[in-house]
């Protein structure tokens, strides 16, 4: 009775080949969301670390360009009143028409205004420990600071996701018993982390903008408003969002791999 050894050609294998097994991304996403809801406090802490890193990134980006804008308007204003005073000399020599006199008076007023602004901005820059030249040249220490902040945050996410994986061994094992394949487990954890990263990045961008604006107004008075880098805003926000999601995914990559490699037998272990 031991002799009939059926080979792997049964109906099961046929079905297996026909089947394109998988769980839709939408389902995985809602599963990831449910997981985050249950562990709300922990995911909030993970999100917080992303918030801080991205707020820092946004702040550095915005504050840097405000400083640069202020410095470059100093240069611009000084150039204009330099050329204006040349023009004054020319016009005063050739014309005595009343219109020209009015023009000159307006120019003179603008001239004084511009000079005041430029001097004020120079002073404010100096008060903040920088100068027109340094602000324009941009500093490489900032880049290092930002990189370090992002790295620290990635390690934080890594740690949080590793904990999440070890805590959920039984859960993952159960899912594998029910038929989850490795790629689903990986996707589940990456989705979870990417979502946390994105939420953290959005909150971080808002926080960073608020802080950067407040600081700009405190440091540069009304120039903080008027020299606000509207053109840079979109770029900085987009970059912050992408970086936030990306660092969360990078941090989750190894933990997700660990989770996927877990054996379903572990689900049978009864200890909590």
């Amino acid at each position: 009775m031991n002799e009939p050894v059926p080979l792997n050609s049964g109906p099961l294998l046929q079905q297996l080949q026909d089947d394109t097994s998988g769980l839709s991304n939408r389902m995985l996403l809602s599963l990831a969301m449910a997981g985050l809801r249950v562990r709300l406090l922990r995911s909030a802490v993970t999100i917080l670390s992303v918030v801080l890193a991205i707020a820092f990134l946004t702040y550095m980006g915005i504050a840097g360009s405000i400083e640069r804008n202020v410095a470059s308007s100093v240069v611009e204003l000084e150039r204009t009143f330099a050329s204006n005073s040349d023009g004054d000399r020319n016009t005063s020599g050739t014309s005595s028409v009343t219109g020209a006199l009015n023009d000159a008076r307006v120019k003179h007023l603008n001239h004084e205004q511009a000079q005041d602004d430029a001097n004020r901005m120079r002073f404010l820059l100096r008060r903040n420990g920088t100068s027109v030249e340094t602000a324009l040249s941009g500093s490489s220490t900032n880049t290092w600071l930002i990189t370090m902040a992002l790295l620290t945050c990635t390690v934080g996410v890594w740690n949080a996701m590793l904990m999440s994986v070890t805590e959920r061994f039984r859960e993952i094992g159960t899912m594998k018993c029910l038929g989850a394949v490795d790629s689903m487990v990986i996707k589940l954890f990456l989705f979870e982390s990417a979502f946390q990263g994105l939420v953290g990045a959005i909150a971080g961008v808002i926080l960073g903008l608020v802080v950067a604006l407040t600081a700009a107004v405190l440091q540069f008075e009304r120039f903080g408003w008027t020299r606000f880098p509207v053109d840079q805003l979109g770029k900085v926000v987009c970059m912050a969002l992408i970086v936030g999601a990306l660092l969360a995914v990078i941090g989750a990559a190894y933990p997700a791999f660990i989770a996927a490699r877990m054996k379903p037998v572990d689900a049978l272990r009864t200890e909590e």
Partner: peptide, 18 residues
Amino acid sequence: AWLRCRKIGYIFQAYNLL
């Protein structure tokens, strides 16, 4: 995984519901 999903049902001591 395919086989576990379709051919085998599991009941655990600690229930193991998600």
